[in-house]
Design a protein around this nucleic acid. Structure first.
Length: 475
RNA sequence: GGCCCCAUCGUCUAAUGGUUAGGACACCACCCUCUCAAGGUGGGAAUACGGAUUCGAAUUCCGUUGGGGUCACCA
């Protein structure tokens, strides 16, 4: 059996899209499963759409997911190769020069539209005299077009869909080399896949309509084709192509929103692939073992953010406290403003981890849950403080005796805080809501917070008492 | 509009001719509980429609409908 060699072929035209990364993951997993090679090929043949750091962004995203590559190529460095094969096709009569200008083509298209016909290049230079063509090429700009078959059908084999037939009369003579000398995707892609010995082409389903173009190039060059696998699309909840207007689409955005690479990896793999009817948590190692391209589904998958959140929450929940501590610290460092980050350094990050881990769906939740550490309470009215109590007197009593109780604690641990406050509740004959609820409000200034005992512990005895005193003074 | 692909709970999916059509997210109810989560228990929820083949169809075939993709000197 031939060595498995697969590739991820992004164009460096922006932030890596989550759908593309899913393709990369499938390719990578398949390569690892078959002990083959995973290549990255930067398809930068459109000079107009290049973006600054485009290549680096692609690399960074792959690295974030741990998708390491065995070889990397950049198409713009391979222009001579494409040109060579274009020349060959030219000489063999499988391609021809076209001197039609942009305006000319626009006019043609407009005319076709007006008369209700489909818009398509009319092959006007297909039978142009080769000698004349060569002569004009010395002085005039031109493109090279592929001579598509005009009769019959082109059969295309997709690994998950079977044979797909296209009527050749639908095909036009598409461009393979642009007037700036760069190849188009259709051409460079085929040439490179062949020269790089790619065994399986796993790419997005959007390529299906241009599949026959690629097949015809292989045929005219007499090249053996790789196995093609067209991956189902990832759609937005409105069932259209996932794009900016639906929210986050790039890896960077998800990272910033506080998602873990491991959770996203797991979630993304299950969009269009499943092992069986029950397994949903996989480590990368397990995935490498069980990944099977024959289990890739045909139908598109809708990107379900709730499920991603759930996955992320599970990954956080199942992580070790010190690992999670590192994650949030890292996240705070990157995405919290410096002042707040510095303020939070005053507290033990491991204690914070213990306090909030099971409450976080994303790392971003950690910001909200720890805000009280550096944001001193502010009250708008007495009522705000008294809201959890049955009456103002009770509130007063709770606050003053809480200070006494906390003061009595020798070792300020979560357990000690809990037991002393619980016995205080019994002594004062107040409900948990009265005492703990009130403390929650005056300590964190929020109705929702991590467990109050943990909050007090992290703040420390001094600061805790200070905040209670502050509330008493406000009454 | 032409061409192409697709069709199981709202969503991700399992079941490759025989299952009470399974699981997960989400939702609802109850339990637990210092709030919020987490956890536990239970619940509602799907084979788009119509034919054909077959003893038997979610599964095979045909059609209809619906959705998507694509029609550039972009990938």
């Amino acid at each position: 059996m031939k060595e498995v060699r697969v590739r991820y072929a992004p164009s460096p035209t922006g932030d890596p899209h989550i759908g593309n990364i899913r393709s990369a993951i499938f390719n990578w997993l398949f390569a690892k499963n078959k002990k083959g090679k995973f290549l990255v090929r930067i398809e930068d043949t459109d000079q107009a759409r290049l973006v600054e750091n485009g290549i680096q962004k692609q690399k960074d995203s792959l690295k974030w997911f741990g998708l390491d590559w065995d070889e990397i190529y950049i198409q713009s460095e391979r222009l001579k190769i494409y040109s060579k094969y274009a020349q060959q096709l030219l000489e063999e009569g499988s391609a021809y020069r076209c001197f039609a200008t942009q305006e000319e083509l626009d006019k043609l298209r407009e005319k076709q539209k007006k008369s209700g016909r489909i818009t398509r290049y009319d092959s006007r230079y297909r039978n142009y005299d080769p000698k004349l063509s060569k002569e004009r090429s010395k002085a005039e700009p031109y493109v090279i077009r592929f001579k598509s078959p005009q009769k019959g059908i082109t059969k295309c084999l997709d690994n998950i869909r079977g044979e797909i037939k296209f009527n050749n009369k639908e095909m036009d003579d598409f461009i393979i080399i642009k007037s700036d000398g760069y190849p188009t995707y259709h051409f460079a892609n085929v040439i490179d896949d062949y020269l790089m010995n790619i065994s399986h082409v796993m790419r997005a389903e959007e390529w299906l309509p241009s599949f026959p173009k690629h097949v015809n190039i292989y045929n005219s060059l007499n090249w053996e084709m790789p196995i093609f696998v067209h991956l189902p699309m990832i759609l937005a909840p409105d069932k259209t192509k996932l794009s900016k207007r639906h929210g986050a689409t790039s890896v960077e955005e998800f990272k910033q929103a506080g998602y873990l690479n491991s959770a996203m990896f797991n979630f993304l793999v299950l969009l269009g692939w499943a092992l069986d009817d029950k397994t949903e948590f996989f480590t990368v190692e397990e995935l490498i073992k069980v990944f099977d391209i024959n289990k890739i589904s045909k139908s598109p998958a809708i990107f379900n953010k709730e499920k991603l959140d759930w996955f992320n929450g599970r990954y956080i929940l199942n992580s070790k406290y010190d690992d999670f501590a590192k994650e949030i610290n890292n996240y705070f460092k990157q995405f919290l403003d410096i002042k707040k980050y510095k303020a939070i350094q005053n507290y033990n990050i491991n204690d914070i981890s213990i306090m909030i881990k099971e409450r976080c769906k994303t790392l971003n939740d950690a910001i909200m849950l720890t805000e009280f550490l550096y944001q001193k309470p502010k009250f708008k009215s007495k009522y705000e403080i008294q809201i959890m109590c049955d009456n103002p007197e009770q509130c007063q009593t709770i606050l003053t005796s809480s200070i006494e109780s906390l003061n009595d604690i020798q070792e300020f641990t979560i357990e000690n805080i809990e037991s002393i406050l619980k016995s205080l509740m019994t002594k004062l004959k107040v409900k948990p809501k009265n005492l703990l609820g009130t403390l929650r409000i005056i300590i964190t200034n929020q109705k929702i917070s991590p467990p109050i005992f943990n909050c007090l512990y992290i703040l420390g005895k001094k600061e805790s008492i200070k905040r209670i005193q502050f509330a008493i003074d406000y009454l």
